[in-house]
Design a protein around this nucleic acid. Structure first.
Lengths: 405, 405
DNA sequence: AGGGAGCGTGAATCTGTTC
DNA sequence: CGAACAGATTCACGCTCCC
């Protein structure tokens, strides 16, 4: 949990060897020009020099720092080097030399849509991130994504065999029925990541040049570290990596040569803002957080979600007796009674008539309540789909039969 | 319109200097293993060797051939070098050396989804194509694509100005309103190309290893050549480049060291088969047959949506008694009985045990059914939240009280 | 238009060879 | 004879065009 000022080449000497699980580097690019950017209110200008004598100089500069990085990286650790098109090939040669060709794991393509002034040629809509591990036994957490829309999931569930020509065939039993295989987990994450470029208007924007979206960093951190692991960013800039590490419960170390950057980083760490990108909310499931379940329930009711309200999660689009109809979904850490009380309290304040409570948890001592009279005749209590299924299974004996493998 | 047998290093000597508009190379990758593949009917096996003494040998091999290519390329011509992750960085260094860093135009990322997937780490779902021109005055035809659905059209149409710090800003009038610019043609083509990988079932397949989709080559040919121009492929393999050039009315020259390849290429040119990709033409959305309500219900159940099966809308992620649990949502144009029948039929075929039916419509004549015995003891019928609320209101009299305001 | 064939990738397992 | 290694073979897998 440190942020250090200085050249990482020197600062890395003070970090214990083999103590870091992930290093993410976003070094200055070889663009041969000065990067400048002002804060929104023009009060401050950040800048740093991106110019080098030659591409060989640049490569050596990076290589020296990569060597220092390798020292502090654990045997099971990984390094991610973020490049742009100008010099990605030279940087990768440097990585090959320091970490070894065999430890190359992936070239991650970060793609985004960007409105940019048209030049002759193709629009530049991606950047490259090279993923190397320190050894063969590197830590990796597979993230599973949904199947493609073109995939016949029904068929995915079928078991297969190989025939005499070693061609794969779907297995059928003696009656010609398909045979189903084990549970499937989904499709492992690809090396092409479609994550929106930081919107210039987004709150996340700090005004520091080359800032990367938190989502990109979160994904990297998730796949190669666990909670409590240590993340290092030797060119931390505005501190996106550290903010992401912090949000995910990882320890972090940041280094930068610029006092401005260090100051800004510390500020951001005190007050992290994550952009909730519209695109991500709609499309990409892998970023869904816990309360997405809630949102899904509200969506299936075609209800308007409400934020920051203890007793009400949403309202139906229709009114009943000229009053809005509030909906409350029981939270995992809430008893039924607590949920009910907070709904009734909130509804009364707004003088709503009809109210809906979605029950998501089974509670034995509730049997009393259900057989009793309803405490409010204009209350609808609905068991969630999930709960109904769980209850059915429970009442049919073996709950153990119903397991995620 | 020639197809030549032999090493391109020699064959290129016989081609007039500065006579070619586009060179596409798909040289053997540095995979260090033998590539082989059989034709569908097992009649023929194609193979070639992808192994090299060292990466330096490989790089020199390519560099020699790039030099020869440069000679025959027109001043306005371009070269596209197709690489995969194994050695793309060394190849690009070679390109820098032969054509000059300044003539680098784009790194094209060809991304696709592919069936095969078992790997510690991220799935390899892209290949790299380096686009260099011979000079600054290279030929280029801009292709415009539709604005992506997630793009904020408003922003694209806004006019922009540069302020005193040469920073780009959206132009506003004296009232602070944004000013709309001239009509735009669309978004110029990106450097990330999503083109389906040649599918195992595609008729276009020849059985030749590493065969590329015609669509990929067509896109390359379109952006840097006009009709009547000449396209050269020094490692033509199964001849995809030549077929694409032919289909687009360009002249072509192909070279390969393998007699099999030359023979196959000639055959294909006589009878070009191009697979039309429904996925590419219609987009992924076409496959998404579920409407938002259905998806919301499946989401709230944390179920996998099934896009392509009759009788089943999704599967729970957990198995019950080692069998998947299908979910069916009653459609607006479906009676309860129809929905039930199709679910039961589909479940039986897959020998599923537990099944879930979400009822979304009230039907009076169903009273019989509900009071009767369930037709299947392992069936759970759940009223949708919506239906429960509607039923409640109905039973409490005034439906007119329930209105959208 | 719903259902299914067939591929090639990378791992895990098996087999063979050497000391 | 056993261990260590290398090479060969087997295995599981999801995508999408075809019928």
């Amino acid at each position: 949990m440190t942020v250090l000022l200085g050249d990482c080449l020197e600062q890395l000497q003070n970090i214990p060897e083999e103590s870091v699980d992930l290093i993410y580097l976003d070094p200055p690019f070889f663009t041969q020009r000065k990067q400048k950017l002002k804060t929104r209110d023009n009060s401050k200008e950040y800048s740093f020099d991106d110019s080098w004598e030659s591409i060989e100089d640049y490569k050596q500069f990076i290589k020296d720092r990569l060597e220092a990085c390798k020292k502090v990286l654990k045997k099971t650790g990984s390094i991610f080097l973020h490049c742009d098109k100008s010099a990605s090939h030279y940087l990768r040669v440097a990585l090959d030399e320091v970490f070894g060709m065999n430890n190359f794991q992936s070239e991650i393509i970060w793609t985004y849509k960007r409105w940019s002034n048209s030049k002759k040629g193709l629009l530049n809509n991606h950047q490259n991130i090279y993923f190397y591990s320190k050894s063969k036994s590197f830590k990796f957490n597979t993230i599973y994504t949904d199947y493609s829309a073109t995939t016949n999931i029904d068929q995915i569930l079928q078991e297969r065999v190989r025939d005499e020509n070693s061609k794969s065939r779907y297995k059928v039993d003696e009656n010609g029925q398909v045979v189903l295989g084990k549970e499937k987990k989904g499709v492992p994450l690809s090396d092409v990541w479609n994550i929106p470029f930081l919107n210039p208007k987004a709150k996340e924007r700090t005004g520091y040049p080359t800032q990367k979206p938190i989502l990109l960093l979160e994904q990297i951190i998730k796949i190669v570290t666990d909670e409590g692991d240590t993340v290092l960013d030797p060119f931390c800039g505005s501190g996106t990596t550290l903010v992401a590490a912090d949000l995910l419960g990882r320890n972090y170390i940041g280094i930068d040569t610029s006092e401005d950057a260090i100051e800004l980083t510390k500020e951001r760490l005190n007050n992290p803002i994550k952009t909730s990108s519209h695109l991500l909310e709609k499309g990409e499931k892998e970023y869904l957080t816990k309360d997405e379940t809630e949102l899904a329930i509200l969506n299936s009711l075609n209800a308007l979600p409400v934020q920051r309200n203890k007793g009400i999660d949403g309202f139906l689009r229709e009114y009943y007796k000229e009053k809005p109809v509030p909906i409350k979904i029981q939270k995992p850490n809430e008893t039924f009674e607590e949920a009910l009380d907070s709904l009734l309290f909130a509804s009364q304040k707004r003088s709503c008539v009809l109210k809906v409570l979605i029950k998501t948890k089974h509670e034995d001592n509730l049997l009393d309540f259900i057989t009793q009279e309803q405490p409010d005749e204009n209350l609808i209590v609905i068991d969630s789909y999930d709960l109904i299924i769980k209850n059915w299974i429970k009442s049919h004996g073996n709950v153990e039969e119903f397991v995620t493998q």
